[in-house]
Design a protein around this nucleic acid. Structure first.
Lengths: 111, 111
DNA sequence: GTTATATATTCCTTGACAGGAATATTCCCA
DNA sequence: TGGGAATATTCCTGTCAAGGAATATATAAC
């Protein structure tokens, strides 16, 4: 079972945007704040949430702190989704089967 | 871009559990409350959140209301994840490549 | 129609969280 | 060692969401 902390961390538009930024490579706090038009403290605060929840890691480089994506929590999300993917495939299969049966049914039996 | 409302709806342990229950088929409010040891009003309230956020739908049957999974928002989640899946595959590919190069490298060049 | 059952809604209180502003901390460099 | 740049933290305030309790609504059964 996936924990809800991952979802909580992503339940904020700015943090979602941060992840999308980091998908293209590591960034410093200042860069993130600049690109998202956030004030630096808010950027730091959001990054802290992401850091503690998991989907981000940090690496100090002199007085910069470079944040990177941490892919594991997203993999967990993927794993969690797996169970539901089965459901929608199942349903799709049923629809396919239904359409096939409909096609094979003689026209005069289609009411 | 996925909206954060889906994540918000899932950012609660009880709602996650509700989804997991509904993955096995439709359930009435009372059943959900009972299985999750929730009071009925709280169950209703969580279901309302899920209903408005998307991942659940409802069907009235006499004085019961049967809630079902609505798979579309989870598909959206899946689509959103797709971008990140590319990242982890990419990294995996790089690792594979690295290991391959390592293998092909003559032993006396491995420092 | 009255009663029971299932569900939804309202009101209240409390706790968590986001943003703003100010300040603290850390590290580099001269 | 002092100053500046980058980042983190603290304090404050307003908003929102969750749970509890009580109540309203709807449907079935008699």
């Amino acid at each position: 079972m996936i924990s809800n902390t991952t979802f909580s961390a992503l339940a904020d538009p700015n943090r979602l945007r941060i992840l999308d930024l980091l998908a293209n490579g590591l960034l410093s706090v200042g860069e993130i704040a600049k690109r998202l038009q956030l004030r630096q403290p808010q950027a730091s605060k959001h990054l802290r949430v992401l850091l503690e929840a998991g989907p981000v890691k940090v690496e100090a480089e002199s007085n910069r702190r470079n944040y990177k994506l941490r892919i594991e929590p997203l993999k967990e999300l993927d794993t969690w989704l797996e169970g539901y993917r089965q459901i929608w495939n199942e349903r799709y299969d049923n629809l396919e089967l239904y359409l096939k049966q409909l096609q094979e049914m003689p026209k005069n039996h289609q009411n």
